[in-house]
Design a binder for these strands. Structure first.
Length: 782
DNA sequence: TCCTCACGGGG
DNA sequence: GTGTACGTGAGGA
């Protein structure tokens, strides 16, 4: 008999054993356990069909336990279903696919729940849970008990062992010759040839150190495929990076998928058993929150560490909803994989129903407070009980037969502003139930962060965790409106945005009632100003008033010493909602929509714009911002001189764009398309949608030079004039609100004028000690 | 002037 | 195992 305390590392299914569990024991060792784990799915439909299914299942070789029962469907209430219990998760899955092939017309529930979730929900467990296991000597679990909750803010933690592997060069650009392996303080360069020695040395590292996590660069796309394929081809060695040596790593092919309006490319993947592999170059969200965020998401979502690291937060929030459903005895509908469908015309016409967007007062303003609703959409879902099943259809009320909506029924109805959609408040919906603890946890983490200095060693991990939670919250809103989501319904999505618009309008009224001018509003934030108010404390009464009027928490993002809202470049009379830059009293710069924030801007352009902003932030408080204009002109002259002299390295001139489609699908030879065509012509492997393409602008046809072509570009071929134009355009976005538009800026940068001439031209006065006229100071309104 | 195409949120 | 929609601006024809 074994009795062990430890932390749950991995759970996966096994045909013979049921589920396999790996624990990091308190004894410092890693332990493998297994446990029988029958899995049940449910089938709904007309009785005769269910009877046919019953007969069919009796003839199946997989021994299923069948019963008729009732379960709750989220939308329709109690339904009669056939429960099909398979002896283990692998047979459950196999049985489901066979049955679905033969009976595609029936409704399936709890059929495609990841085994780790199913098991976790059954035992109150989750990845990295602290738990106690009682097992037989052969590892068969007799009892497993959680010792902590996923919601613990400071859970006890195992000492995890981390090993990193990367090739000596980027395999996309050059042929690697060695692997670099690091663990503890050790660093090893292991040559790729002879291959047998490579495998022997790698296996020695894995055996000696026995890592829990292998963190790689290009591990998915190159390192592991190379190792596994070479083993197979040559037969000289056999390499298995799993901790569970009875299994081979699981490989998954590359794919491109469409999400949040853009295409994401994901290279092939290699997953391990008994330990984790994360390729940081291939884990889309990993860069957002790193390991601390991955662990945070694994704990709260219940998805295995390897999965959350690789999947989008959408999978995480779905997992959380599934667990709430499992706990509440609500059926989880099977998710049909539907082919990508285009929006119907009706969908497109229903535009402009999203967040409220206001037109800002164009120009430069001082002492502006930005106040933002805290996690606005999730807060709305919780506060107004928005969930696919609580948001009823309008016709539900119009029909007189709706006895259950009558006052004597137990439904308590509230109506969504603008839309008049009824929302049932008699019980808490699935989505609010899922979100509430998540929201509370994020607030708890943020409070802790607020008390820490950013240099504190705990700051980074807390920030990452808070960020990981934010993504789960954000995505939950998107899923509400996603018609293929298990628990989605477009009306609930619209209800959320309607409440959002309402809250923003109430906030505006509150601000105006308290004497503030509202300069701008954008979805969940307001920019307000009032003469004489500039400290954070000056805005506290407004925050309280807004919360009182909306029921939603709102926080001060900061007070800008100055902020400039930019007009449209195409028409200077037209304000645009999301192009602005500003400097907070606490020293932060914030900018939206300008080159410094755009992924496709060459670093040289973005950096110069950033340097100009930094120069502007050095203007002392109370002095006119335009006083630094000549310094900005000088800075630009220097940068242009460097550019013309060829002293800017080509790397800093690279434009990076995401390929949105395959090359053939381009109807216009845009710069990216030409760069990709160039690479294909040079025999490079075809670029996939979602991959990033880097290129230089060059003078001669085809006008671009794809960076991933072999060889180096000729520095003389760089299209300097084009970069000059890009630079001036970026710079003028900043100087325009100070009174210097693009053509004026161009003239001053091209000339040799000194400060005094510049000053005289701009002000009409001699510079000596002369104060800058009011026209230079802040524009208070349009 | 019209059409096509990339970007945005976060840090 | 992924899922918004829309406006802006640049570049090409």
């Amino acid at each position: 008999m074994i009795k062990l305390r430890g932390w749950l590392l991995d759970v996966y299914d096994d045909e013979k054993e049921g589920v396999v569990l790996w624990l990091a024991g308190k004894d410092g060792r890693r332990h493998r356990f297994y446990q029988a784990f029958p899995a049940t799915f449910y089938v709904g439909g007309p009785f005769p069909r269910l009877r046919e299914l019953w007969r069919y299942l009796l003839s199946e070789p997989i021994p299923a336990v069948l019963s008729r029962t009732q379960r709750r469907d989220l939308f329709t209430g109690l339904v009669d279903v056939l429960a099909v219990q398979a002896p283990d998760p692998v047979s459950q899955n196999r049985l489901f696919w066979t049955v679905r092939g033969r009976f595609p017309d029936l409704d399936y529930y709890n059929a495609d729940i990841p085994v780790a979730l199913r098991y976790g929900a059954a035992h109150g467990l989750f990845p990295l849970a602290h738990c106690q296991v009682v097992a037989a000597e052969d590892g068969r679990v007799q009892a497993i008990t959680p010792l902590d909750s996923r919601w613990d803010i400071d859970p006890s933690w195992p000492e995890l062992r981390l090993l990193t592997i990367e090739p000596d060069v980027d395999p996309g650009h050059a042929e690697p010759t060695a692997l670099i392996v690091k663990y503890e303080q050790k660093e090893k360069h292991i040559p790729l040839v002879p291959f047998r020695f490579l495998v022997i040395r790698l296996e020695a590292c894995l055996k000696r150190y026995d890592p829990d996590l292998i963190l790689t660069r290009w591990g998915d796309t190159w390192v592991f495929p190379y190792l596994l394929e070479t083993c197979q081809k040559t037969g000289v060695a056999c390499f298995n990076p799993n901790r569970d040596q009875g299994r081979q790593p699981r490989e998954q092919e590359e794919n491109s998928y469409y999400t949040y309006g853009q295409v994401i490319y994901r290279g092939r993947q290699v997953r391990l058993y008994g330990r984790w592999h994360i390729d940081e170059r291939n884990a889309v969200m990993y860069g957002q929150y790193g390991l601390a965020g991955v662990f945070e998401q694994a704990r709260v979502t219940g998805l295995p560490v390897q999965e959350v690291a690789r999947k989008s937060p959408g999978a995480g929030i779905t997992a959380m909803q599934m667990q709430v459903a499992l706990r509440e005895g609500v059926l989880v509908p099977y998710q049909k994989q539907q082919a990508e469908s285009f929006k119907s015309a009706a969908d497109l016409i229903r535009a402009d129903r999203g967040g409220l967007v206001y037109q800002p007062l164009v120009g430069l303003h001082d002492n502006v407070a930005e106040i933002d609703f805290v996690s606005m959409y999730p807060s709305i879902m919780v506060h107004f009980n928005i969930s696919p099943e609580t948001v009823l259809s309008k016709s539900a009320l119009a029909e007189p037969a709706q006895a259950d909506l009558a006052p004597d029924g137990n439904k308590k109805i509230q109506f969504v502003p603008e839309l008049g959609i009824p929302v049932d408040h008699s019980q808490i919906g699935l989505v609010p139930k899922t979100l509430k603890p998540l929201l509370a946890r994020r607030i708890a983490l943020k409070q802790r962060l607020a008390g820490l200095d950013s240099r504190d060693c705990r700051y980074g991990a807390l920030k990452a965790r808070s960020n990981a939670l934010k993504w789960l919250l954000v995505v939950c809103f998107g899923y509400l409106g996603y018609k293929n989501a298990r628990f989605g319904r477009i009306e609930s999505h619209e209800a959320v945005t309607a409440y959002g618009r309402e809250a923003l309008l109430r906030a505006k009224e509150a601000a105006e009632d308290l004497g503030f001018t509202v300069l701008h509003m954008y979805v969940d934030g307001l920019w307000v100003r009032q003469e004489g108010k500039k400290t954070p404390a000056d805005f506290q009464p407004l925050l309280q008033e807004v919360t009182a009027r909306t029921g939603l928490p709102i926080a001060l993002e900061g007070v800008y010493r100055w902020v400039a809202f930019l007009p449209s470049r195409l028409d200077k009379q037209v304000p645009v909602a999301n192009r602005y830059f500003g400097y907070f009293q606490d020293g932060r710069l914030k900018m939206r929509g300008i080159e410094a924030r755009r992924h496709d801007a060459p670093p040289f352009v973005a950096q110069t714009q950033m340097d100009m902003l930094k120069r502007m932030s050095q203007v002392p408080d109370g002095q006119p911002l335009a006083g630094c204009l000549f310094d900005l002109v000088l800075l630009l002259r220097r940068r242009l001189a460097e550019l013309r002299a060829g002293r800017i390295t080509p790397e800093r001139l690279l434009v990076t764009q995401t390929l949105s489609r395959s090359l053939e699908a381009y109807r216009v030879p845009s710069p990216v398309a030409r760069a990709v065509a160039q690479m294909e012509a040079a025999g490079k492997p075809t670029m996939k949608p979602g991959q990033r393409v880097r290129f230089l602008y060059t003078r001669e046809a085809p006008g671009v030079w794809a960076w991933d072509l072999p060889g180096k570009p000729d520095p003389a071929s760089v299209d300097v004039a084009r970069y000059e134009a890009l630079l001036l355009r970026a710079a003028s976005a900043l100087t325009e609100p100070l009174g210097l538009d693009e053509s004026q800026l161009r003239a001053w940068v091209a000339g040799r004028a000194t400060q005094s001439r510049f000053h005289f031209a701009m002000t009409g006065r001699r510079p000596a000690g002369a104060p800058v006229p009011a026209a230079w100071a802040f524009a208070q309104s349009t």
